[in-house]
Each structure stands twice: as structure tokens, then as C-alpha cells.
Computed example of a mutant assay.
Amino acid sequence: MADSWAKAINADNEISPEVIDKWFQENIKHHEAKPKLAKLHFFAHEEVTADHPTNLLIAPANTGNIASTQFGSTYVLDAPLTSGSDPTSKLVGRMQGSVSYVGQAEPVLSVSVHFVFTQGEYKDSSLCVLARNPISQKYRELPVLGGTGAFRLARGTAVGNTFTVDSEKLNAVVEFHVVVRHY
């Protein structure tokens, strides 16, 4: 599946405007290219209170009225993605980006994250998610708005589900089912 991606890298393993242009010329000719479908399943391990946190508060809310929703707080994250729910499962990538609590009446995140794949078929590729994430709901639909590498021109959906949560320590494992079309 990722064969056309491998052809879009030059001999020095670099991406350049010329390499990207050539890829488009060879793969997206007059909208005749056939999209591929990828279905992915993985888990993100988010830890706020660990010795080496994966989610770091960078902008606390500037109000005293945030007890239930954290409205106004912003975190950056760099959390491992694994093939299973156990943190010792096979590492497949990282979830990197930022989240801000934007709901006043309920805990809602504004999410800007990248699923960066470091192993397997999609190594050195990423997916970009920009979404509203109402974290109190069991399942949340998050749009995939693009990607890099094997996921160039990706469009699709990531469904998030809080698999486990430790409310006291603010640590969670989030399960993702992702379906994307890409070229």
C-alpha cells in the first residue's frame, strides 16, 4: 500500500518540492488515481501525572470556575501509540499536538493532533486530526483532514473511545479506530 510513498522520496531520503510535484504528476493524473482505503486500530497512552508525562499543561485556565470542565486550559502532548491497550504493547507511533478545553458546560476539547507512525507499513507517515472532542461521550468522531507520506491527501474519520481512565491521576488510555482514503 505504501509503495507510491516510497517512490516519492529522493536518494537522500528527503522530501523536496520537486519530489512532491513528481509524485503528483505520476499519481494524481486528471483525478484518475484510485484512492486506497486504510483501516487502523491503536491506543494512545496519555499521562498527566507520571514521572515523564505525555500530556503537559502549558496554559492553565485564567479563572477559578473550571473545576468540572477545565475550561481554558491547554496541554501539549506527545503520547505513545500502541497496538494494544497495555502500555507495553508494540509501539506503532506517537500522538503529537495540542488540546484545549473549550467547553464551559461540559468537558469538550479542541484537538489538533498528528498520529505519527514510526513502525510498520506506514512508518514515516502521519495523519492530521482537527476536531471538537466531547470527552464525556463514549465514542467521539474526529475528522482526519490530511496526512503525509503514505497518507498524502488522506480524508477520513477517527473514532475515539476512552478505554480506561484514572480520574484522580488524570491518566487515560484512548482507543482509536481510523478509516481513511488516501492515494
Rank of each mutant, 00 (worst) to 15 (best):
A2S: 12
W5D: 15
W5F: 15
W5M: 14
W5Y: 15
A6E: 11
I9E: 09
I9K: 14
N13R: 14
N13G: 14
E14V: 08
I15Q: 07
I15D: 02
S16T: 15
W23V: 01
W23P: 01
Q25M: 13
E26Q: 15
E26I: 09
N27C: 03
N27G: 05
I28D: 14
K29Q: 12
H31P: 03
H31E: 11
E32M: 14
K36S: 14
L37V: 12
A38H: 11
H41Q: 05
E46S: 10
T49N: 05
A50I: 02
A50R: 03
D51A: 15
N55I: 08
L56H: 09
T63E: 01
T63P: 00
I66N: 12
T69L: 02
T69F: 00
Q70T: 07
F71G: 04
S73N: 14
S73R: 05
L77M: 09
D78I: 00
T82S: 08
T82M: 06
S85R: 05
S85W: 08
S85N: 12
S85I: 07
T88E: 08
T88Y: 01
S89A: 13
K90N: 10
L91P: 00
L91I: 03
R94C: 02
R94H: 03
Q96Y: 04
V99H: 07
Y101I: 03
V102S: 01
Q104L: 07
E106M: 02
E106G: 00
V108N: 00
L109I: 06
V113I: 13
V113G: 02
F115V: 03
D124R: 14
S125H: 14
S126T: 13
L127Q: 10
C128Q: 12
C128G: 12
A131K: 01
I135F: 13
Y139P: 01
Y139Q: 13
L142D: 05
P143M: 06
V144T: 09
A154D: 03
V159Q: 03
V159S: 00
G160V: 03
N161R: 11
K169D: 01
K169R: 12
L170Y: 10
N171H: 07
A172F: 05
A172S: 15
V173H: 08
V178P: 07
V178E: 05
V178G: 04
V178C: 04
V179I: 07
V179Y: 05
R181H: 11
H182I: 00
Y183R: 07
